[in-house]
Computed example of a mutant assay.
Amino acid sequence: MYTALVPVDESETRARRAANVVTSLPGESDELNVVLLSVSEKKQQPWFTEAEINTTEGQPDQSVAPESVDVAYEILENHGASVEKRYEYGDPPKRILAVAEEIVADVIVMCSRRQSPTGKALFGSVTQSVMLESQRPIVLLMDE
């Protein structure tokens, strides 16, 4: 079994690109396990707040999660991969690395936004932090 972690933000375009790259990984699709991870920083995302309010069996209501997760899920499921959706809150780079470690990801597939050097200095970069701290292979896609 080959396990890929795909962190997904709210962009359907980036989610679609990442999912398509995962489908092109070598090996049989039925041996591919994919975890789609959406991280909300400090519960500030409106979808995460709504998901927490509407919990089912202690789990956030996934129906209110970003559409981007469903876009990627559909592509991967149609490919024949085993797909799991995960929603978490906290510091995005730390959560991505922690989940990668927990699931023993063989690869992390990320699609990054282009950001000016000033933007990176002021706001940081989730992708940059994950790249610098990860001990796992990363496939990085840049916004078109």
Rank of each mutant, 00 (worst) to 15 (best):
A72C: 04
K42F: 04
K94A: 14
T3L: 08
G80L: 11
L25P: 01
I96Q: 00
T56A: 10
E144G: 11
K94H: 09
V64I: 02
V107N: 12
Q115A: 15
E74W: 10
M131T: 15
E10C: 13
P66N: 06
I75G: 05
S125L: 00
S116D: 00
V6W: 00
L25Q: 02
V83G: 04
A65C: 04
N54T: 13
E88V: 10
E57F: 08
A51L: 13
S63Q: 06
I103Y: 03
V69G: 01
N78L: 10
E28N: 10
E77K: 14
S112E: 13
L122G: 03
A65V: 06
N54W: 05
E77N: 12
L32V: 05
V126N: 07
L37W: 01
E41R: 15
G58H: 01
P93T: 05
E101I: 02
I138H: 03
R14Y: 06
V126Y: 04
K85I: 08
I138T: 02
E102Q: 15
E57A: 10
Y87R: 05
N78C: 11
V22P: 08
P117S: 01
L122F: 05
L25D: 02
P60C: 10
L141E: 13
V39A: 09
V8Y: 00
Q115N: 10
V35A: 03
T127M: 01
V64E: 00
Y2D: 06
Q62V: 07
E41T: 15
E52N: 09
N20M: 14
T13H: 04
I108Q: 08
R114S: 11
S29H: 13
E88D: 13
P46I: 11
V130T: 02
M142W: 07
P60Y: 03
D9Q: 03
V35C: 02
D30T: 15
E133C: 02
Q115H: 10
L5P: 04
S129E: 14
F123T: 14
L140Y: 07
A15H: 06
L140K: 12
S82G: 08
I53Q: 11
V39C: 07
P137T: 04
I138G: 03
Q45K: 15
V6Y: 00
V6C: 10
V35M: 03
I75K: 05
R16Y: 13
A121F: 12
L141D: 03
Y89N: 07
R136Q: 12
V6I: 12
E10P: 10
D61W: 00
V39H: 05
G119S: 05
V104P: 01
W47M: 12
G80N: 06
E77T: 14
E88A: 12
Q44V: 15
E10A: 13
P117G: 04
R114W: 03
G58V: 01
M131S: 12
S68F: 00
L76I: 09
P60R: 03
V39F: 01
E52F: 03
Q44P: 05
P93W: 09
P26W: 09
D30V: 05
E102M: 08
E84V: 11
P7C: 06
A65R: 11
W47F: 14
E52V: 11
R17D: 14
L76R: 12
P60M: 09
E67R: 14
V39D: 09
M110A: 08
A105H: 09
R86F: 01
E101P: 08
R95P: 08
I75P: 06
F48T: 00
P60K: 06
L132Q: 12
T55C: 04
D61C: 01
D143Y: 00
E101L: 07
L36C: 06
L141M: 08
